[in-house]
Write a protein that binds this DNA or RNA. Structure first.
Length: 510
RNA sequence: GGCCCGUUCGUCUAGGGGUUAGGACGCAUCCCUUUCACGGAUGAAACACGGGUUCGAUUCCCGUACGGGCUACCA
């Protein structure tokens, strides 16, 4: 039987980066096994539904390159793939469970249960308490019928039989055993007619012929209920295999990574930025922070999984080939933003200049820079070993697009002297007519000029750098001069003279 | 509280009954470079603790501690 896996997020807001990792592992497993990767939207909670979240999920998957083979917006023979569109199906299956004696109608209101919970610390609906509650197990059949037809509010609960041992075989953790006495009678169908996660999940996984359930560790405790459901439906022979992923933890402190940690630690925890109703509900994304999707994928893949060996850099194809569920770690993984940065730097460094240019283009345009693709590629080449994020190209390297905003005054003061005025005017004259105006040609000419005039290379070159970039950091001087062109180079040389004289006077006066 | 899961350098991890416990991020030092980076080299840095089992445990078993998850008509 061919492998079918699903990524089943619920559209309650922006998709957490941990969700992206879950999608990634599902995707890798499907690809590697020649299987099918399905996107199912679990929107069974009407109250938590957030408009736009579904689109966000799809756009996120698209950005990181994890396109589903089937699912909402992607077609497939097992639809619909949005659970709210499958409402009638769940009711039918829930009633089937009631008919077979594996579930029952319960009439206790949430308020009534809440009161019980407050009175009895460990109160829960289970085999021990259901006899004292209002349901189709305790009420005469006729009354159940009359309550039902009277339109009274009810839910369907799973009837967990006590005294059983439920063995779950997890692909990552091995055998996990639960005692049915400890399990509560989970609500399967809610009062609004919608299923809970538990019912919808099992029905859909069965109907969609899911073979492997790869999901977060937070689902491990309820897997016992899921097994009971498969049994109740007599689907145990085709029950999917389970793999529960370790959680992604906060960078520091205790607990799992949460939405708020982004703001708290000054880093994104979502793939794309999200604009919520309020500023507090809005979050920055990896994409907007200037990450390449390949870097995010690589980083995420290694957060909780490693194939062994010393390789750190993996393309999606590499990951597909190397992936194995057995190599997924059991312990939670701390979200290490420093490592994410390193991956991004690596991917930017090795990216093609023309490709980088397409990424820089919108950033440059946002700043009002009007430049050619060729020029952007040149900038990419000059800066890519000096940046961490995409916006750094236009921010750190702004001087490749606009005049110097500020000079490193300390350095200028140190290197400048009145004689330099003449030197740089002459240098401008030497450089202006150079042809072709290329790095090597410039270097030869400038160095000859330095030698002929008996100047100190360190002084002239430093000042030249200051003239072109304003700072002592940056690409090789002659590369910058070549990129800027003769006109701009000369202009900046003159500008330096102005600045240098100013600084010198300041020193004299002081 | 109850149930379940986990624990190798600060972090992500490899490994596995006998190893100098390996790699990567970060950090430090040095080299390269008339800048900054990149790159290269080197270094500091770990098997949570206590019992077993064993000739021998970091590795297997049991406890303890610590961490995490679940405990909703949320997913």
């Amino acid at each position: 039987m061919s492998v079918r896996v699903r990524f089943a997020p619920s559209p309650t807001g922006a998709l957490h980066i941990g969700g992206v990792r879950t999608a990634l592992y599902n995707y890798l497993f499907a690809r590697q096994q020649g299987g099918t990767f399905i996107l199912r939207i679990e929107d069974t909670d009407q109250n938590r539904y957030v408009p736009g979240a579904e689109e966000y999920i799809v756009e996120s998957l698209r950005w990181v390159g994890l396109l589903p083979d089937e699912g909402v917006g992607f077609g497939g023979a097992f639809g619909p793939y949005r659970q709210s569109d499958r409402k009638a199906i769940y009711r039918e299956y829930a009633e089937r469970l009631v008919a077979s004696g594996h579930a029952y109608y319960a009439f206790d209101t949430p308020e009534a249960l809440e009161i019980r919970r407050n009175d009895e610390p460990n109160f829960t609906c289970n085999h021990a308490t259901r006899g004292g509650l209002v349901n189709s197990l305790t009420l005469p059949a006729a009354e159940v019928q009359s309550r039902l037809s009277a339109g009274e509010s009810w839910v369907i609960r799973l009837k967990v039989e006590p005294g059983q041992e439920i063995h779950v075989h997890d692909l990552i953790r091995g055998s996990v055993v639960f005692q049915s006495n400890e399990l509560d009678d989970k609500v399967l169908l809610k009062a609004d007619g919608m299923p809970t996660y538990h019912l919808a999940n099992i029905v859909d996984d069965h109907l969609m012929q899911i073979t492997h359930v790869i999901r977060g560790e937070e689902w491990l405790p309820s897997t016992a209920h899921h097994v009971l459901l498969y049994r109740g439906f007599c689907w145990e022979d085709t029950m999917p295999r389970f793999a529960h992923l370790p959680l992604i933890l906060k960078p520091v402190g205790n607990g799992k990574l949460s939405k708020r940690d982004g703001a708290k630690f000054g880093m994104p925890v979502f793939p794309l930025s999200w604009k919520g109703e309020t500023p507090e509900d809005s979050f920055p994304g990896f994409r907007e922070a200037g990450f390449l999707p390949e870097a995010v994928v690589n980083f995420l893949a290694l957060l909780g999984w490693h194939p062994g060996g010393d390789q750190e850099l993996f393309s999606l194809e590499d990951l597909t080939a190397a992936f194995s569920v057995e190599h997924i770690s059991k312990g939670g993984a701390r979200f290490d933003f420093e490592k994410a940065k390193w991956f991004n730097q690596k991917y930017i460094q090795s990216a093609d200049n023309a490709v980088l240019a397409t990424h820089i283009r919108p950033l440059a345009e946002a700043k009002g820079y009007r430049v050619s693709d060729d020029y952007l590629a040149v900038v990419a080449g000059l800066m890519k070993e000096r940046v961490t994020f995409l916006p750094d190209f236009v921010e750190v390297g702004y001087y490749l697009f606009e005049p110097i905003r500020e000079y490193d005054l300390e350095m200028l003061q140190k290197k400048w002297n009145p004689g330099m005025e003449q030197v740089f005017e002459s240098l401008a004259a030497v450089v202006a007519p150079l042809e072709p105006y290329e790095s090597g040609v410039l270097e030869t000419a400038v160095k000859a000029f330095i030698q002929e005039n008996g100047l100190k290379p360190g002084d002239v070159l430093s000042l030249l750098r200051l003239a072109l970039a304003g700072t002592m950091k940056g690409p090789a001087v002659f590369d910058m001069a070549a990129a800027l062109g003769p006109e701009e180079t000369v202009k900046r040389l003159h500008q330096l003279v102005v600045q240098g004289s100013k600084v010198h006077q300041g020193v004299e006066n002081a």
